[in-house]
Design a protein around this nucleic acid. Structure first.
Lengths: 234, 234
DNA sequence: GTCTATAACGAGATAGAC
DNA sequence: GTCTATCTCGTTATAGAC
């Protein structure tokens, strides 16, 4: 009985994975807007209605791909931090740049999944609540690095313009009450700027402009880290 | 005869504009990937084959929309600079932030056209050479501001990592031989980071995180300007 | 209960004959 | 330019295999 259930569950997991793999192929070929359940089913030798046992609608399949992508890049960021920490206690700037480079490497290696989560929104699709957790994993890693640097080194955040103080205090209260509002604002800005560099590279805006993408990115990411106050070995 | 030709030419211009307007509506509703000549024709009460007199292919229509979008945001940037200079000679940082804010305002007001040029690439479409000129207008405005600040104030660019020197010299030689390579690299980085903040706002990544988008952006853009060495009134 | 297959719907795209 | 026949799509209802 358990073995039957186990076999069924295994089959279900395998088929679910096969559907997502095929959907990812189509993502690369046609884009998220044209992702088609029927085409996925056809390619898998199934009939379209059978897919509804696994994904109740096309949008749910899209959501699964989005969650997978966020989890994939989030795991890459978390692993990069863990790997950096695995040696001896590295300085804050080294942790920051290691994570940034891991995110860029993931993006370059998975451009279509990157476009799915950090590119133009898919018309007619609105992300459900399920995506919020996975979507915040990279940001949480960056917050962790800043928090550690603040509590151990007492890093000084950049100055905060007066007009932005209410917004800064709200942001800090919302998701990092233990950090100075100025640091939270700087962190959010650095976070978005980081993905600006990555998007320009992945989406081709750097064509004929930046050729050594990895070197250029590493230097820019290090500057971003310094700008929020992260220190290298004193 | 000239009047007939004039009328014909006028009609052609009007119809071309109507086609592009309708195509922009579809861009908003369905996204660039699903832009369809037939749907545009139907909405205009024309037959699809008639559209080919104005745009030889779907990709050519797409190219026209892309060129228009680049020209639109480029003109916004240029006008913002001219308007800032129209008063008394403003400082470099004021010129920079004025242009940045104009670009953001344009993006927020035209999210779908913004997505067309700065979002995920359209699958199967590759931009022809015609887009290169319009695409560089915003960048040229930023270069102008940096050049003026360098020649009049002699601003000091941020340090350049040694590994990046060959790339920096190539970049400077390519499109700003009169500027220090370190400044060119910093400028390109700031340029991409600028659009990182804008993309996060326009594409919804700031949902539930940044609420005062304009204030947040203005402060971040000012910091970007300072980071490349721009000075406010001494 | 879990799954797949058949058939159908309404909407839209596409190709070609005229 | 028009019309028509034939595709695709997402989705549902239904029936039967395991």
């Amino acid at each position: 009985m358990t073995s039957v259930q186990g076999a069924r569950a295994r089959a279900r997991i395998e088929i679910t994975a096969a559907i997502k793999d095929e959907a990812r192929k189509q993502l690369a070929a046609e884009g998220a807007a044209k992702l088609s359940l029927r085409a996925v089913a056809r390619e898998l030798g199934m009939v379209s209605s059978a897919l509804y046992r696994y994904f109740p609608s096309r949008d749910d399949l899209l959501t699964a791909l989005i969650v997978d992508a966020y989890d994939s890049v989030g795991a890459a960021a978390e692993q990069a931090l863990a790997a950096t920490d695995a040696g001896r206690a590295p300085d804050a700037l080294a942790r920051w740049t290691a994570v940034c480079r891991a995110v860029r490497s993931w993006a370059v290696a998975h451009p279509h999944e990157y476009a799915l989560i950090y590119g133009s929104p898919v018309p007619g699709y609105s992300a459900p609540q399920d995506t919020v957790g996975p979507a915040s994993r990279v940001g949480l890693v960056l917050i962790t690095i800043a928090r550690d640097a603040f509590t151990t080194d007492g890093i000084a955040p950049p100055p905060l313009p007066g007009r932005l103080r209410p917004e800064a205090e709200r942001m800090a209260a919302d998701f990092a009450p233990d950090l100075p509002p100025a640091l939270v604002v700087a962190l959010v800005a650095a976070w978005s700027q980081l993905f600006g560099i990555i998007s320009f590279e992945v989406f081709g805006q750097f064509n004929r402009i930046v050729e050594e993408g990895e070197e250029f990115f590493a230097a820019s990411a290090a500057r971003l880290g310094q700008d929020i106050g992260l220190l290298s070995r004193a």
